[in-house]
């Protein structure tokens, strides 16, 4: 009986959401602000990738908050796990030859690809978060394939803090030079080249390092405990 009622309620909610969303035309520009980003974004920010110009320039302050949330989550995880008490490192079962060889070949390629994604964040799809996540998945491969290797916790903490610091300091420099936080005070250059878009690539590189070391640190914390 309870199951039938809950399925009925779910169906009602689904029909309601479906009916209200069906009125919205799919794939057509609806708001003025969206059209402004698409038409004027490249001229105003210098970034060819419109998503990046919104994430780092128009909504840069939101991104700072997002990065802070990730930072707090990583710190919270570390604090909770440090209370459990580390297991003494027993004998580590070595990975199979296919896995360890594959990880040795693939790890540098994944690192290069992740760095490419966040360095070219203002030109091609992707950016700091995506590149950082790709780099962290490279570190995950290291933990699976070469099990005796560990990243240095201290180095990852330092990288993480430096990334956050660069973001905030660049925001404050904008406050100093132009009067508001995260102002794009550097020259925009010609769009579609690597050295363009002012502070956007610098911020995205900082975010890439920060997210990569944060996610790698989370994985490291979890693997150390198990």
């Amino acid at each position: 009986m309870r199951k039938i009622v809950s399925i009925l309620l779910l169906a009602i909610v689904a029909v309601g959401i479906g009916l209200s969303l069906a009125k919205i035309p799919f794939g057509t520009p609806k708001t003025k602000i969206g059209r402004h980003y698409i038409n004027e974004g490249v001229k105003e920010t210098g970034a060819t990738n419109t998503v990046t110009s919104v994430v780092v320039s128009y909504r840069g302050f939101d991104t700072l908050g997002e990065v802070t949330v990730l930072f707090i989550a990583a710190i919270g995880l570390g604090a909770v796990l440090s209370n459990i008490g580390k297991k003494t490192a027993g004998k580590i079962q070595p990975a199979s030859m296919v896995l360890s060889t594959g990880c040795r070949v693939l790890f540098p390629l994944i690192l290069v690809f992740g760095s490419y994604i966040f360095i070219h964040g203002h030109l091609t799809p992707g950016g700091g978060f995506q590149g950082g996540a790709i780099i962290a998945s490279g570190f995950l491969l290291i933990y699976l394939g070469c099990r005796e290797r560990r990243i240095s916790q201290k180095a990852s903490k330092v990288t993480e803090s430096l990334g956050g610091l660069v973001f905030v300091v660049i925001g404050l420099l904008g406050l100093v030079f132009g009067g508001y936080f995260l102002l794009n005070f550097l020259p925009k250059g010609t769009s579609n080249t690597l050295f363009s878009a002012g502070i956007i690539p610098i911020i995205y590189i900082a975010i890439g390092f920060k997210v990569g070391s944060e996610l790698a640190g989370i994985i490291d914390n979890l693997i150390e405990e198990s």
């Binding site: 992707g126 995506q130 996540a133 790709i134 998945s137 995950l140 996610l215």
Partner: peptide, 11 residues
Amino acid sequence: AMAEAAIGAAL
């Protein structure tokens, strides 16, 4: 798509 593949599918 990139974020979903790296975070949702891998990590």
